[in-house]
Amino acid sequence: MNIIIDYGVGNLDSLKRACEEIDFPVVITNEIEVIEEASSIILPGVGAYEAAMNELNRLGLVDCIKSKAKSGTPILGICLGMQLLYEFSEENFGAIGLGLIKGQVKRIPDIVKVPHMGWNKLNFTKQESLLKYVNEGDYVYFVHSFYISSTNDELLAYSDYGVKIPAIIQSNNIYGMQFHPEKSAETGLNLLKAFKEMCLYDSISSN
């Protein structure tokens, strides 16, 4: 079963509808028993980093997500969800993340308008399967005030906002999109479609 984790943030219906539009059936849940059995996990998110981590902790999901990550289950973090995949955020007075990927989350410097809100172009740094249905220069929709301040090998695409904004990352079975694919028209659906195919591939190869 493909899961969207519901931990009380934002509007998950539009994400669910976008998944269904590409024939990727998903269930919205926060039940640990269901998530433990998930074949793929989407971790959405808007709002504050620490509050989100507190809620995941309260629901007992932090260890569950970590062990699913370790066992190879595809996990896609969207927006704040992508930031949670990293180790630490300086938001508010600092908060510990899931730590599935090395790196930190910082506030976008005030030399540009914050939040970074609107449609920005994808620039590719790699050619990976996740990008197979989109083109360099396609626009996606961002709304965020914090960003991954430095990336390593996991960076697949970034957007130029005066500051380099990591947009799509992948580290083995861990995926992240800083923008909202469910709000990014055709391009967003194409990225979700590629993620869906990666999930199918991963489940075949891990069996």
């Binding site: 509007n11 219906d13 539009s14 509808r17 976008a18 929709y141 709304v143 909202h180 469910e182 709000k183 990014s184 028209a185 055709e186 967003g188 659906l189």
Partner: peptide, 8 residues
């Protein structure tokens, strides 16, 4: 309306 949209 929200159901029909793929944009913000």
């Amino acid at each position: 309306v929200a159901k029909e949209l793929r944009i913000p």
